[in-house]
Design a protein around this nucleic acid. Structure first.
Lengths: 105, 105
DNA sequence: CCATCAGTTAGACAGTCATCGAACTGTCGA
DNA sequence: TCGACAGTTCGATGACTGTCTAACTGATGG
């Protein structure tokens, strides 16, 4: 999984745009992201698993994808993992889509 | 390819959201979309092909995906095909992403 | 120290998808 | 009518990916 250096609120590097688009493309990840974003404090890993009919392994895989894309941040505390939405990154992606919208000239 | 009924400027049906996310996930389609969106009059099919090192067959495939997602409109005029960006649909998708951003409560 | 629990990693498998060449359809000009 | 051209459809193929089970790591409680 490629590392993405720093996701400023401004422009996202091309590689990250690709990872984000890919991460968003899977319905499962999309749903996970929605759940994490639903509350301001994020969500616990086990919490997500409780709502999803999904194996721990599969969930872990998807979380890694979301993290690699920079869309979430995973904070490990002892046995547990806390998942936080990177709102700045998602916002930057929205902004990027907005740029496509606007013809140049 | 599933047909999408009407893409109002408001909410997009779940199925279309999935198609859009998927369409956006491929780098090639992303680039094609950018090119189509770059000018207000859209782009000619041959034009896109000229900028892309891509087979006609592959391009046709991608255009079908983009059309199925509702992201572009293909207007056939004689031998040629004119491609127009559906800005309302892309805007609606952006709006949807914005909804994830906002915690409910 | 041991059992249990949360999450990760590894490997396998099935389904999806981007891509191509080749054959096809329909249009235009001569 | 014929040939050239734009784009489409078909079938095959190789790569990727979502999913699982099983084995592992690390933390917590007794």
């Amino acid at each position: 999984m490629a590392k993405i250096k720093r996701a400023a609120a401004g422009e996202l590097p091309e590689a990250q745009l690709r990872l984000i688009a890919k991460a968003l493309a899977d319905p499962r990840r999309h749903e996970i992201l929605q759940q994490i974003g639903a509350s301001r404090e994020g969500a616990a890993c086990a919490d997500v698993r409780g709502c999803q009919a999904i194996t721990a392994a599969t969930l872990s895989h998807h979380l890694k994808e979301l993290e690699a894309a920079g869309l979430i941040e995973i904070v490990r505390r002892g046995k547990f993992a806390q998942l936080n939405l990177r709102r700045d990154v998602l916002e930057a992606y929205r902004k990027h889509l907005g740029a496509i919208l606007r013809p140049k000239g």
